[in-house]
Design a protein around this nucleic acid. Sequence first.
RNA 1: GCUCCCGUAGCUCAGUGGAUAGAGCAUCUGCCUUCUAAGCAGAGGGUCGCUGGUUCGAGUCCAGCCGGGGGUACCA
Length: 688
Amino acid sequence: MSLRQLQETLRERVRAAANETFGVTLEQISAEVPPRTELGDLAFPVAFELAKLIKQTTGEKRPPRAIAEQLKTALEALPQISRVEVAGAGYLNIFYDRAALLSSLVANSEAGTASLSAATNARPKRMVEHTSINPNKAAHIGHVRNSVIGDTFVRILRAAGETVEVQNYIDNTGVQVADVVVGFMHIERMTLEDIRALDNSLPPERPFDYYCWDLYTRVGLFYRNDDPGGELDPERLKLRAETLHAIEAGDNPTATLADYVATRNVECILDTMERLGIRYDVLPREYEILHLHFWDKAFERMKETGALHYQTEGRNKGCWVMPFESHTGTDDHEADKIIVRSNGTVTYTGKDIAYQLWKLGLLGLDFNYKLFRTYSDGQKTWITTTEPQADSETTDSRPQFGGGATVYNVIDSRQSYPQDIVRRGVAAVAPEIGEEASVHLAYEMVALSPAACEELGIRLSAEDRARPHIEMSGRKGLGVKADDLINRLEINALSEVEARHPEITDEERRQTAHQIAVGALRYFLLKFTRNTVIAFDFKEALSFEGETGPYCQYAAVRANAIFRKLDDAAKVSATEIINNASDSESAQRQEVARVLEGESGDEIWSLAVLAAKLDEAIKQSAAAAEPAVLAKYTFNLARAFNLFYHRHRIIAEEDATRRAVLVSVADITRRQLTAALSALGIEVPERM
RNA sequence: GCUCCCGUAGCUCAGUGGAUAGAGCAUCUGCCUUCUAAGCAGAGGGUCGCUGGUUCGAGUCCAGCCGGGGGUACCA
């Protein structure tokens, strides 16, 4: 029996006892963890609630403590419970039978971690879209927050048994791509062949996406005739509009050039993400959404269902709009959201509604697909295309994309208004699905502290210096590039590993440094809750000490070191002793119970219980769609283990029963810690 | 104007209506002959922005105010 099952059983007991004893039906029974282990493993503050309900129904006033006393006996009857105490003003504190439970935790430990990662195919498919970086420049740390939150959420869902499809939307026909194309064509005066040659000549440390990063900022200046404070030049802006139009139309030299630029940037961005262990199932592109007429189909359905209104007069005359009454219109801002412009073209939000309908299997159209990338372990990423695949073999071997039951869009919180429109648009077309199927997984941006800007050599205005943080901007070239930061982390980690482990090979050291760097970066981005603005700080991001990924990895490495050095006889003996303790009549049961008694027993037991709560943490993290919950849990487990590790000399322990208990608790902990880190996308190195 | 988010230790942040509000960093003091100190222990540090309300119980819920940030495009 897992802790969660035991907790459910107890809850049902409380419900039944309340009903029998007081004739009161409790709806929600909250349980909590007492502040200290010596107060018990679980507490029900249910007597307070009951006192109120009894007074309401019978008018009789009963003290909570007396109520708790009456419930106590009903819970004590359970075999997994050693005793129940009434404490404080009326808390019902439950003490588990430690020896029995430890024995079953060890038995479940291997099976338990295995079932965590096994997906149950019966569940409906969840769709997660994340990353979705405009393919016109290198990824910066703000983009990486998106990807790491998205990827970790995917891992958490999978750990909770869900089936998940991962999408990375590619806006290959948008203004941002057009801008870089303007740069290549009108500033650099390059042809497609020139760009190819340039691309091949670039050094690995400054690849194509870095080149585009710089070029993109130059385009911004170009539009202002190279004066940062100057006016936008309408003649030059016309180049942008023409370029954008050509890219959208397709089948012309500008579009071919743009496709090369966008595709190369996608490749670079995927390389960056691969460094962090982030991959995708499919890359849906805007070009296919346009050319396979997704919008036309969605438009039809939205007109049929009355989701859109045609405006015959007023400011929005000639437009198709979606009413939006939660905002009040003013002189400056219209209440309704325009979906189709008066010139007949569709807005981005409109295209997004069509895409969302496809994700939910409600559009009645599908993309064509081709293979984009095969990873070294055989995993494949597909990309959309307008042409049907000729090769039927590849078509057969690819998964079915789209048609999910729930869609999670990882998009920063500044886009919550258009996301709201998308959700409502979908619900209007498909009321049977409703708004619940569309989830905007919003997160706040990563901003730069004025100090971090200074460190990057960026000059700030006096006004900016007074601000709490400065928004990153691809347009201004203002940001910390992801690869630069990963490189710095790897260099720092490598010098530590070199100092600590001269005995291992260069390749092993590089691998270890890489794992540490990824652990540091992913944990840094996950420890903040989604709605916290991260004011990026180099010192904090580059740290390997305190509440960091490497701290958690280090705890797991230490735990593994015990088992590398522990001899086989001790392992076998530990397993036997704890196994035998499952029998309530056995001598081992009494001995194990003795080890888990008292202050020292509390300390050991609290680690076992915390480790056993991984599935709870995963479930809670998934339900709240908040990876930070799991990150905090993982850190707390690592912290508890480090304390345990410091207090006990496990291998040298002479009392066989005590050693068996310590070994099994360490074993459960390292398994759970490794599983928790894995759900955060963090690996455990061999050595640190 | 309307709307969403934030305000908790010097700093950065956690905190499903429950017991004495917690971490990390920074400061100070100890601990490497140990299963590796990327670690552990200890100390100092709090009017949970303010004022009311609901509740047996409020950092958490409600209302109002004060301060900060976002959104509210026929941009994406």
